[in-house]
Design a binder for these strands. Sequence first.
DNA 1: GCTTTGCGAGAAAACGTTTTCTGAAAGCGT
DNA 2: ACGCTTTCAGAAAACGTTTTCTCGCAAAGC
Lengths: 338, 338
Amino acid sequence: MAKRSTTRRTGIADVAKHAGVSHATVSRVMNGNFTVDPVIAQRVRDSAAELKYYPNSVGRSLALGKTDTIGVVVPDLGNPTFQAMLRGVSRAAAKDGYRVLIADSSEVLSEEAILAAEARRRCDGVVLCAPRMSDAELQDLASSLHPLVLINRTIEIENTPSLSADYGQGIQELASYLVGLGHRRLAFLSGPEQSASNRLRVDGLAKFMAEHPEVELQTLAGGVSFAEGHESVDRILASGATAVLAFNDLVAMGLLSGLHEHGVAVPGEISVTGFDDIPFARYTTPPLTTAAVPITELGEAAWERMRSVLQEDEQVSLGTIFSPQVVVRGSTGPVPRS
Amino acid sequence: MAKRSTTRRTGIADVAKHAGVSHATVSRVMNGNFTVDPVIAQRVRDSAAELKYYPNSVGRSLALGKTDTIGVVVPDLGNPTFQAMLRGVSRAAAKDGYRVLIADSSEVLSEEAILAAEARRRCDGVVLCAPRMSDAELQDLASSLHPLVLINRTIEIENTPSLSADYGQGIQELASYLVGLGHRRLAFLSGPEQSASNRLRVDGLAKFMAEHPEVELQTLAGGVSFAEGHESVDRILASGATAVLAFNDLVAMGLLSGLHEHGVAVPGEISVTGFDDIPFARYTTPPLTTAAVPITELGEAAWERMRSVLQEDEQVSLGTIFSPQVVVRGSTGPVPRS
DNA sequence: GCTTTGCGAGAAAACGTTTTCTGAAAGCGT
DNA sequence: ACGCTTTCAGAAAACGTTTTCTCGCAAAGC
């Protein structure tokens, strides 16, 4: 049983004794139950205040069968996108009296299922952001994780809402914008193969290419981080593309930095677009043209869904798709003459 | 008592019945207690696997008197500095099997004490980052929050480690560097009055000025955010300073952006320094000269201290101060001739 | 005056574990 | 064969709440 430390914290029993009532009555008073005589209620409140009593939340959770906590699993707490999402979830949940337990898989794919399961054991539900987990594994996990809300996935699973941005549409709009500027040789600096949102981009581009036979597209392996964008500068230059669609803003910024070091003018010689519109995208040089994903709102919406599931609402909207918005800034321009 | 949902989760009792042993034995097996006959142990494990049993962590917490969770209170989850700190704490704690519950006060000072107290009730300890809370309030709170670790505060409280960066030293080094470049008219774009780390900067600058009578320093009210830096550009230009020490990188970046809009060359006409070295500081135009605060390591160290306190180590180091490192980049240069 | 109604508070069960204590069986030496 | 220790598993208490059930008591109705 519990490690008996030298002094136990003051519990409901102490208050009960001090006020000369039973545990039950103290509990009722603390929970604002009105079936208790106002005189006694006040005596209990006074005792509680005097003894500095606060209900033990573990005991409460056990009796109530809920923790008022949800888990949020993200691949990388250092990534601005996930940070913004986490903030959205956390603030929205806080408004309803729920707290957030974080689990950072540090991009280790094999940890995600374990972390999610462990989070679920401690919390009333899990918001899972696992861009690279396979649909099959997600299906398997879903029932054991329920209540579960998926972020940045479009997958239909019973009882589990999934929220996502329409990366396919966004990248098409970016490509369309570039082609409108006269570009005919595009390069796509892709994200991880397994990434669901990368697949959406690839599919979107395929569709776009089908409609624009005059345009040429090369797909180069990129990555997700600034460093990976920076590294790919040579391959981009070798490709001969006049415009680059980077997987996300971080990669675009890395590329921008690399191009700058090579003395390549942006957008004079080459145009660059990002994706996400992270807070710093507007402050790069030149400011980054990108497709804005309302990721904080996506996080807030994730909480709304979670709340619906927790309250066992009749009607919970499952699939929700946010539309990215193209934001034109300085990193894109007309195709160079030469 | 607990809301009896239609189907109860499988508990220790189910496993016990299935394996034909008592609760106690199941518990022993699940906790790797070796005083159990290997044959029986295996039978229990098989039953557990078959029934997909996982110990309920709330029940466990109640019996054990600990939650394996710590709370982290930050003023703003949208601020890169606190994000980095949170990541440091979270990853370090995860290595020791602890999880982090986050509480974001959204810069509402009056919420911080409440959030911290509530976090403490749910967790084994609290890491508190409250730059603007008064020393007196901190003192009051400390005993009720213990185990408590303070971040970015230098205050001596019994039993509560506090970690901080030496903002005073850092800003002196920055000022010294600027004076070395020939600057004699400096401006300090200050943070919030109540901010402890701002006070350290102010004191550091005062000391510096005492040693450098030839230098002139103006202190202007600034803020903590990009927007506030951006807004102060007019006042900076009016001040006639040739170099600006911004409260932090965000403010510096806002200022940089504002100066750019006004067509003022940096560092040609004016030099700018930041503070913190957030990830994007190296990618501004020009890249920001700043004092790097190892904030992620500070977060990791915070967990180390917390662990020591939780383990009731004999010797816990209380005050720890990290030294910022001046990082010279492109936003600073020689004083203009005119 | 007796029964009914209703209100308010206490006793006790329940939530799901861990751990102490106890006792049974087995092993071993004489 | 007896008594001693040792091993191992079960009974039960403990952790700190909430909630159902029950019951006493007073007021009201006849």
